[in-house]
């Protein structure tokens, strides 16, 4: 039964080795899907290339469905997997800052590493910026601490907050995702990238 780290007593080092293998899969799929290109990533915000939205949401619903199936068959204990804590204000403000970083920098942290892996200099500079930004946070932690710790709401699932089952919420998410994919494909036709036209 999963998570293996909890139920099968795999050692810390084995877990790190699996992290490495999972990382290889993660990096391979990101690069192969085009996440190593900042222009392709930025395309989602202008409609000319919506690969990111398709990959991102397909991955989320695939893993979400997989987790529920695993839970249903007793292959994984869903009470023991990590759920990110919800601190309302830091999540909102952090998300907004990240959004600004995304549109200016053209990468997010995970994708920038795949850019680095294939030699993108802009990705290397972006990673340099990440190091600097995190250093600003760790050095300036007393300034951020109030916001960082405010309005802690535990680790709620959206489904439980809405009072519906996980499966029902996921069904809604799957339907919304396919609706978005339809719109995304339409947007690509509507807003093609006109290179060079001034």
């Amino acid at each position: 039964m999963g998570p293996l780290i909890v139920y099968e007593n795999i050692t810390q080092n084995t877990n790190l080795f699996f992290a490495f293998l999972i990382g290889i899969g993660f990096g391979f799929v990101l690069e192969a899907s085009g996440f190593s290109s900042s222009r392709k990533l930025a395309g989602q915000f202008y409609g000319y290339d919506t690969t990111v939205i398709k990959v991102f949401f397909t991955a989320a619903i695939t893993a979400g469905i997989g987790l529920l199936i695993f839970g249903l068959f007793g292959w994984i204990d869903l009470d023991l997997i990590y759920i990110n804590p919800y601190y309302k204000w830091s999540t909102i403000v952090g998300g907004m800052i990240m959004g600004a970083g995304f549109i200016l920098g053209g990468f997010c942290p995970g994708t920038s590493f795949t850019g680095v892996a294939i030699g993108k200099i802009d990705a290397m500079i972006f990673v340099g910026g990440l190091l600097l930004g995190i250093l600003i946070f760790t050095e300036g932690y007393p300034i951020f601490e109030g916001l960082y710790m405010a309005a802690y709401k535990g680790t709620p699932r959206v489904s439980s907050m809405m009072g519906i089952s996980d499966g029902l919420f996921l069904l809604g998410l799957v339907i919304v995702a396919f609706g978005m994919f339809y719109v995304a494909e339409w947007a690509e036709k509507k807003f093609p990238l006109k290179e060079g036209s001034k």
Binding site: I65, L72, D79, S165, G167, L170, V174
Partner: peptide
């Protein structure tokens, strides 16, 4: 790409539909 989306939708939506009404199992 479009036909892949349709194929995925044909698989995912019914599966999610079944999951939505499957009994919830807990080990509490």
């Amino acid at each position: 790409i479009k036909s892949t989306r349709v194929l995925l939708a044909v698989i995912y939506i019914p599966v999610a539909f079944v999951l939505a009404f499957a009994p919830v199992k807990t080990n509490k």
